[in-house]
Amino acid sequence: MPSTGAYSIMKKAPVNKIIQFSNVDGPGNRTAIFFQGCPFNCMFCHNPETIHMCSSCGLCVSKCPAGALAFDEGGKVVWDSGKCVQCDTCIKLCPHDASPRVTWMSVEEVLQQIRRCAPYIDGITCSGGECTLRSEFMTELFREVVRLGKTCLIDSNGSYDFEKDPALLEFSQGVMLDVKAAERSWSEKLISDPGDMVLKNLDYLKNIGKLYEVRTVILPGRDTENENTVRYVAEHIGDACFYKIIRYRPFGVRERFLKILGEEETDEAYAGRYASLARELGASKAYVV
């Protein structure tokens, strides 16, 4: 289709990073593409620098010890990946939960990297941030990746109305969906969103057979919230897909949220109780990670 071809040349998406070989972003060995930008703001986010787009405030520029950041002629902050030593000074400093280390890439540029990895991988996973903010870009990318004989997975927070985008799902093997909170009030606190769309997607994706796995983070000491979420998910997915019970880990969590969620990680036995509960409720493929 000529129009999509033109799209792939013109349109670019902000890519935070591409991991060539990942063993934790879906089954087998996968190339994982992390897009910048997320509509949610989750308290336990481990990589908050992927939430917002850089506003070019420039606070990080003079602090970069490697001289990898500068202003361009238009006053925008630009990043030199060749000079960068990945010390993370910029993202630690950023008051906006953003990162200057983002590359705007075309579908073809991302594809070039995937083609290199293709002999060694099972497929790709788009993640973020929230990758569905780049749904058109992803659809285009997936179309090409499927032609390489590789599978495409979407790692999503569920904010996107998947029902309205059959083209995206056509080329995707499925969605790995985060369900962080089942109750509206708790969801608003935890992820800054009532979460209605997430729960809608849970049912929709399950019904059309595109739910690859669901993940819930178990927080220490939040018995009621944990149970409500796990119960909701388990009753809705049954044995349709994997259910990953993730232990809360304070690593990378922002200071202000550490005060609320605590600095202790969820212990394995505690998380295990919720995996057992999920299995009792019919989610036979529930397990702790």
Binding site: F21, S22, D25, F34, F40, C42, C45, I246
Partner: peptide, 10 residues
């Protein structure tokens, strides 16, 4: 070491 980079837990 071929390691997994922190990539989940959004």
């Amino acid at each position: 070491v071929q390691h997994h980079e922190e990539s989940s837990g959004k």
